[in-house]
Nucleic acid binder design. Structure first.
Lengths: 208, 208
DNA sequence: TTAGATAATGAACCTTTATTCATTTATATT
DNA sequence: AATATAAATGAATAAAGGTTCATTATCTAA
């Protein structure tokens, strides 16, 4: 038994423990309940009932209520960021990269409305308890920084942009659009907002 | 005694009751405590202690804990929107109006950080309990709509703008910038972001 | 098949905290 | 000053709900 097999075994254990069917069931149920009632109003009993298990069972898979939210966001963040990285790679230049990123962002959130709601409203609370997800948007903002800097090198974006402001500007606007969509109960197609939105980023209200 | 004096008296009473020193003290204390701990973790005792009154006293001025948050947001919203309307009026054209609006927005939030924090994180909760503040951002969005439409008439803004998207885009971006400022513990000057931000709205990342 | 280990249960426990209200203090009136 | 009215107090109450753990069910391996 060498180090490698040890690592494998370790992964196996954590796989069995972390990705068991029940674990996922609980996590999804929690997502639904948190999204519906908000973290504080949601109760352990509600989540347990939704998952079809006893209250005590949650504590076999999670440390406490906070931990459930933390794991939920952790997990979703990983999935989404993986997708975003792939999306950005598809672009051949800064403009394309930005377009793919925004499309991906809206697609992922449209496909997982519970996540969208929770990200929108509970992330600030998490910041208090777990700084491991130190900046949930850090990675996103870094992605944006890279794109903008590339755009400046390519000459497709202005040289005088204050990158720190621009990336916040971009993220804020997407979040705003998502937030509206959530409030409207997801009644329209969110992804179709991507291109007009990127268009706004690039050419602004004035146009050329 | 005519109708007018009756109204005056009515106002006087409500002034005495609603704007008493103690009422304001409690409201401000609540703002500080809510901002620091978040609505749910904040306790009545903390707020009372901060205001230098007994726990029970809060219930002479407010219906319950929810009501304190509701009144806080209600009050701040009124003040800020009044300022915003004044600011917008100062602009002679759409572009100026937008500029004054954003400057005002950032100024007000910079001057009242507790409000900024609470608006950023607790507004969603309020939506659940009190739909009287139906759309806390509704008025703001309407202001923006008017500005954009005026800009289109003046010819300073593109005709093909989807106003519903644009206003969300603008509000989202300001909120994003404020949110970052809050996270940074207000260590830099928020208001100085106004002009670069409006610049981005108008001419975008590409520039002319 | 059966013993031993593991997983699941859910009622009881216990802490927390919003709210109440009998009592006390302050204010206004005659 | 005496009385009436209003304001404030803070200890007691009660409800909620997160967490525990003794008990039961399920699974595993020999």
């Amino acid at each position: 038994m060498n180090l490698y097999s040890f690592i494998l075994r370790k992964d196996d254990i954590s796989l069995q423990k972390n990705k068991s069917e029940k674990y996922n069931k609980i996590l999804n149920s929690a997502g639904a309940v948190f999204a519906k009632f908000g973290f504080y109003k949601a109760t352990i009993s509600q989540i347990a009932a939704q998952a079809g298990v006893a209250d005590g069972t949650l504590y076999l898979y999670f440390k406490n209520k906070d931990d459930i939210l933390y794991q939920f966001i952790s997990f979703k963040t990983n999935v989404v960021f993986k997708e975003m990285h792939i999306a950005v790679k598809k672009g051949r230049n800064a403009e394309e990269k930005l377009r793919y990123l925004i499309r991906c962002h809206l697609t992922e959130f449209q496909n997982d409305r519970n996540m969208a709601i929770i990200f929108q409203s509970e992330v600030r609370y998490l910041r208090d308890i777990e700084s491991q997800i130190k900046d949930i948007s850090k990675m996103y903002l870094d992605l944006l920084s890279d794109i903008i800097e590339q755009g400046q090198i390519e000459g497709s974006m202005r040289q005088d942009l204050f990158v720190g402001l621009v990336k916040r500007f971009i993220l804020g606007a997407v979040e705003g659009v998502i937030s509206t969509w959530v409030s409207a109960d997801g009644r329209y197609d969110l992804v179709s907002m991507a291109d007009p939105l990127v268009d706004l980023y690039l050419t602004g209200l004035k146009g050329q």
